[in-house]
Design a protein around this nucleic acid. Structure first.
Lengths: 347, 347
DNA sequence: TTTTATTGGTAAATCGATAAATTGATTCTA
DNA sequence: TAGAATCAATTTATCGATTTACCAATAAAA
């Protein structure tokens, strides 16, 4: 007893009318097409009765619209991206859009491949946290007039909508804050990356140090899913720089990883060393004493991103210029730097 | 200069051959269809030259296969689900499948709607962490011979493949462990839920207490995205049960939330109270002293799930019986219970 | 009276692929 | 030498929708 799925033709046949009429009615074009109230009702009633739902593949093929948004994040397992994905998914869903997502791993080749796959699935819009190396592919999408919004990072040379945060300013402020508290040997441990946001974070740190004539201690770690491959270099770095009095971590991932290293080396926070991390995370809040963090406004980032895309997708709004949004981060001062601040004030 | 996308007809016309021939060649059926080597090469070369890629919508419409897997998790922002999603995505990608995902929020109506949407997009297979209330919808999918794998929970009454962990056994062991350490007033704080896995966790706790003739202290909290709405009831519960000496949390979400409450109330772990949480999380490892956790084998869960689905999708393997997998959890003993254990041994 | 509009629809083309049936020329087989 | 098989593709149907073009009958306008 295989219940074959009904098609619009079946509906039309059952009602002895043409499929065109059914299509018009189902697409709300009945009035426009002057179809009688009586027939409209009869069709709607029947359609509801048998639970007919139009095949969206066929629909997409004909209309060119898929009502799917392609979302490319660096790694869906990263809480920062997972939270953004969650918010975007919700807003999209409420607007009749679905999400196909994938993780790029910051791999340009993989990303290129994925963009290609999104294209031939005719996704209606693209939300991308792009890795370095896909500039041309993004440019290509734009050239073909496809709606694209970048987030977390962007390409300075390309005129494309994006939503980012003020990374430089945040690390600058955080570093200045540490300097004011009396810290002199402040390290910046970050991921090796040429992405705009990571560069800006580094630049903010450098700028603050330069202005205060302090030496910089920079450690760039290659990202790896395998935590150990990231911990070991950090441990080495700390061993070689025993006199550091503060560390700023460039991402939440490296922050939690760094904390584990610090922990295992028996270094006390903040008595031995003060810590600030980019991105907030439950770990930083619950660490004892809690860790100062640069919190990105996750919801705001997501909301801005999806809103820009939805307005591009909404054909009723004129295709305005690309929106470039930079949001402010929130420096959440917590015990890890403050307690020590008090201590050092007593010295 | 709008570069209209090429179709198979354009290719055929340009080469003065039939589109069917092109289709056969592109689908590797050239030999089978005895098409001359020379022509095959000419077509492949040309296709590569102009960068033609078949429209997968049209393909899906005709073949009924979409090469998309529908993934439904409770909440993609939950690290447990995000990590599973990540692994599944990778394996799927390597096998030529893409993922459409969505968060159910454990809402049966929303889930039903999403299943419907997956269906009319003709996803090839379904991976679902199902909320209570969609039994019939799952049964319907199975009746129509669609490949489905459930994970994290399942429906005892439905013959469907699933991958879960031994929840009952884990909380039983954890509770027994606390009892052995001398704890007497052990609370179980969990989410209000009728899902199999949550019930099993509760049952394991109850079983251990009963066997030891101890009183149970159970607090069920309604899940809410808004953390405060979960912290307040927990705080009330703790205030009303000041003499508790240990707590087991039913999920990572409620565990971190509970820790924050404990923290803000000035209760010390493990000196005042011992803590064990279901699901492991960076927070539990980094908390000081670190917290014992029941770690679910995330990768194994994901690997089993996607493997079962892929083998169902692989038409070459005969459609065997449904696989029902129960994996063992890993009880990671850490300071939060051990340190106190030593203390209480000294008393 | 002829033209134009309105009414209430329908038939056929189209989207871009795959699958089934067919073709005409040659070669093999009984 | 009639019939079958092989070759190398081609023509046509199909998937399930939307969209364009059209139609016959009547009413209104010029």
């Amino acid at each position: 007893m295989i219940k074959k799925k009904l098609s619009i033709v079946d509906i039309a046949n059952k009602l002895n009318i043409s499929k065109t009429t059914v299509s018009f009615i189902l697409n709300g074009r009945a009035r426009e097409k002057r179809i009688s109230e009586e027939l409209v009702e009869r069709v709607l009633k029947f359609v509801k009765e048998v639970g007919y739902k139009p095949n969206s593949l066929a629909k997409s093929l004909r209309t060119g619209k898929s009502h799917i948004i392609g979302l490319m994040v660096e790694n869906i397992a990263d809480p920062f991206f997972a939270n953004i994905a969650r918010y975007i998914e919700d807003r999209a869903y409420k607007n009749g859009y679905r999400i196909i997502y994938c993780s790029t791993d910051n791999d340009a080749d993989k990303t290129r491949d994925l963009i290609g796959m999104f294209r031939d699935r005719h996704v209606d819009g693209y939300i991308i946290a792009p890795p370095v190396g896909v500039e041309e592919d993004i440019a290509e999408l734009l050239k073909d007039d496809l709606p694209v919004v970048l987030f977390d990072r962007y390409f300075p040379g390309i005129d494309c909508s994006y939503v980012v945060t003020d990374n430089l300013d945040s690390t600058y402020t955080a570093t200045e804050y540490l300097v004011e508290q009396g810290y002199k040997k402040i390290a910046f441990i970050t991921l090796e990356s040429h992405q705009t946001q990571m560069q800006a974070r580094l630049d903010g740190y450098k700028k603050a140090l330069e202005q205060n004539n302090l030496q910089s201690y920079i450690k760039e770690v290659v990202f790896n899913q395998e935590t150990k491959l990231m911990s070991d270099p950090i441990a080495d770095f700390l061993k070689n720089n025993k006199d550091l009095d503060a560390i700023i971590f460039g991402t939440n991932r490296i922050g939690t990883c760094g904390l584990k290293v610090i922990h295992s080396m028996g270094i006390r926070v903040p008595d031995d060393i003060a810590v600030i991390s980019f991105d907030d995370h439950d770990v930083f809040e619950l660490y004892s004493p809690s860790i100062t963090a640069i919190a990105q406004p996750v919801e705001e980032i997501a909301a801005n991103t999806i809103n820009i895309l939805l307005s591009k997708l909404d054909s009723s709004t004129p295709n305005t210029d690309n929106k470039k949004v930079t949001l402010q981060n929130d420096l959440r001062y917590r015990g890890s730097s403050q307690v020590n601040a008090k201590l050092s004030a007593l010295k």
